[in-house]
Design a binder for these strands. Structure first.
Lengths: 203, 203
DNA sequence: GTCTATAGGAAGATAGAC
DNA sequence: GTCTATCTTCCTATAGAC
């Protein structure tokens, strides 16, 4: 394909995306200026507006794609079999999606507060789909007597918060490997939902 | 005591504090302007500088006092008896301190990233004291065979992140009461540390 | 103790040259 | 497609009147 000299749209575009993810993750949306993003990319601030109409839309698109990606990863997981197995697959899919990205960074959901109400609502729709899927698993396990659940909504919220809590301390390339994290969370989450000891069938 | 007319230092001071906590918690330090804080208090922006030398110091003092308060609450808790009992007291103290405040809001630790390096280090010292206390409990339980722990540092980090995750969804005055939250977290954390089923002594 | 006014700078976003 | 230059707005922080 013929291409004009100096046309770097296909290179700069992704770089803007990655720089924004990295900076928003590290410092938060409000603390990051368009000039900082531009410096990270290696262009002047004005050039960013070839790739996004404004700063707000940049954040919105990143968060929406991220949330859609989480839903897709969840749907691609093998959520079949007994509730315990489904839960394990959900936990693994969640952790791999949120921690395993090439870029190694993921914008925390707390940045949702920086979206305009209209934009927030669009992302929130996806978040509800995601959490509803988890709640289905929780309720199925409760019905089957496999999970101790008093309030499926509360249990689901707590599970999500536990899983997202990993972002508070996990560092890619750090001492703790992703496999270890996965195994650890699968283990503690499984145990945390286990019915009281007396109700566990001895085997 | 004689007091000059118009001297509201003892009223405005606390109001600045509370407004800053509320706004930093809701929107994050970087997204909040001194003008917003002033408006919340009911004064003009310039008047805030009677109570803090600058915005950074305002955040620093709030976070430092918060962290010191957590350490004091932990030390005031009855951390005696077997590791299971100590852990339960730690969990209850942590949740009550972080959720039970009169103001009903607590600046998330993610705001630590907005501190200057020198200020960050001072708060970090307190955080290490706090986490070390939890790790002591975890290790004691592991030695006694009461807890399943492969890596006490990892377990401690995960426990802290689980406990702080409550801030992601709990709303004071909401559907779920503080007592319920406490009971729920004590239950799931106790279970999550329980040794595997086969190793539990039948009784 | 609080106000108004303002200095000084940095932010988001646009215009036009190349 | 990117740069430089700039408009406009908002920010932190200070000065001086009351």
């Amino acid at each position: 394909m013929a291409r004009k000299t100096g046309s770097h749209s296909d290179i700069t575009g992704p770089k803007v995306r990655e720089a924004a993810i990295r900076l928003f993750t590290a410092h938060g949306y409000a603390a990051v200026s368009m000039r900082q993003i531009a410096a990270e990319v290696g262009v002047q601030a004005g050039a960013l507006y070839l790739y996004t109409p404004n700063k707000q839309t940049l954040l919105f698109n990143l968060l929406l794609e991220q949330m859609q990606g989480a839903v897709e990863a969840m749907k691609a997981a093998d959520l079949t079999g007994p509730a315990e197995a489904q839960l394990e697959q959900f936990v693994r899919a969640h952790l791999r999606y949120h921690l395993g990205g090439e870029s190694g960074s993921f914008i925390p959901y707390t940045e949702l507060r920086n979206l305009t109400p209209a934009n927030y609502e669009k992302v929130e729709v996806m978040r509800r789909v995601y959490e509803a899927a988890l709640e289905e698993i929780v309720m199925a396990g409760a019905r089957a007597g496999a999970f101790a659940v008093e309030d499926s909504k509360l249990t689901t919220l707590v599970l999500i918060s536990i899983l997202n809590g990993v972002l508070a301390w996990y560092r890619p390339g750090g001492r703790v490997k992703l496999d270890t994290v996965e195994a650890h969370y699968v283990d503690i989450i499984r145990k945390s939902l286990r019915p009281a000891l007396m109700q566990v069938p001895a085997e």
